[in-house]
Design a protein around this nucleic acid. Structure first.
Lengths: 150, 150
DNA sequence: TATAATTCGGACATTCAGGTCTTTAAGTCT
DNA sequence: AGACTTAAAGACCTGAATGTCCGAATTATA
């Protein structure tokens, strides 16, 4: 709903990397197995992220992928723009052209503030937030298992 | 961004119908020419809306399509759900399963309020609002043409 | 230097949304 | 009844997104 399938894969892979210690590379195989992603396809997506400057990569033994920036410095918006481009976010909700503040489409006045809010959300949410969310979830699962006597 | 291409066509066709007097049917050809939509394809989409109960249709001479409800009673959400289904709107933003309030995904807490807002927006916006927006736009265009001396 | 490990890159396969075309069924009019 | 108009339904086509496969390029290590 917010972004494409490709982009979702990118977010998940990046979130996985954000949870790992900052030194050294992580294998594609490890990422895709942990996150249950299609391996070859994800390889291409990660490569796109390399070209976009969000990841570093290294070939050969002890190679793999690593974040090119600290998790605080990578926002969802950057990921979306690297993978999907910016087109969707600025597009008119009804698809009528031309559509601008001067020549608004039927939904323009009401839709625009909401769209701005969505964009802000993507801009403010970083990989750190995502990684923190994952560890919070992990704890909840552990607690659930403990209390249910497993 | 909010809904699929099919759904956008549906919204535009419905908006066109909402601007017409309530009696009688409107030809598919008229709708698609006025809104510049692919004719055969739009026929299928309109038929989906008939099955969903948002439109009525009639074959033969003086046949065509008409709203099954007054424009105030058809919300964008109903259109989206008739065409795209409800899946996207309730889906977890990151695509992790399971994802619920008890077992939230990394984005759950922050994404959910925004998603609720989007849903509310779709629910509160009706065909009447859209039709009103169109006539507002039409006036703006006329005024622009008048002042530019055309 | 040889070898193994790993990403890179392109060719190919599959699936799905978008879209056209043709035939059929259901109405209206004379 | 017969001719005509129009939506309904289905077969088919197209292009983009998704995904696989395999060889080439690169690099650490023995």
């Amino acid at each position: 709903m917010l972004y494409s399938g490709r982009c979702e894969y990118a977010v998940r892979a990046l979130t996985y990397l954000a949870q790992k210690p900052a030194n050294g590379f992580t294998l594609l195989a490890e990422i895709t197995e942990a996150e249950d992603l299609p391996r070859a396809f994800s390889g291409k997506i990660l490569h796109d992220l390399v070209r976009a400057g969000l990841l570093r990569s290294a070939r050969g033994p002890s190679g793999g992928y690593a974040l090119a920036l600290p998790p605080t410095d990578i926002s969802l918006l950057q990921v979306v723009q690297s993978i999907d481009g910016t087109a969707d976010l600025d597009r008119c909700a009804v698809g009528l052209n031309p559509c601008s503040d001067e020549m608004p489409c039927p939904l323009h006045d009401t839709w625009k503030p909401l769209r701005t809010e969505i964009k802000q959300y993507l801009e403010e949410t970083t990989l750190l937030d995502l990684a923190a969310g994952v560890s919070r979830k992990r704890k909840l699962i552990e607690r659930a298992n403990a209390t249910s006597g497993v």
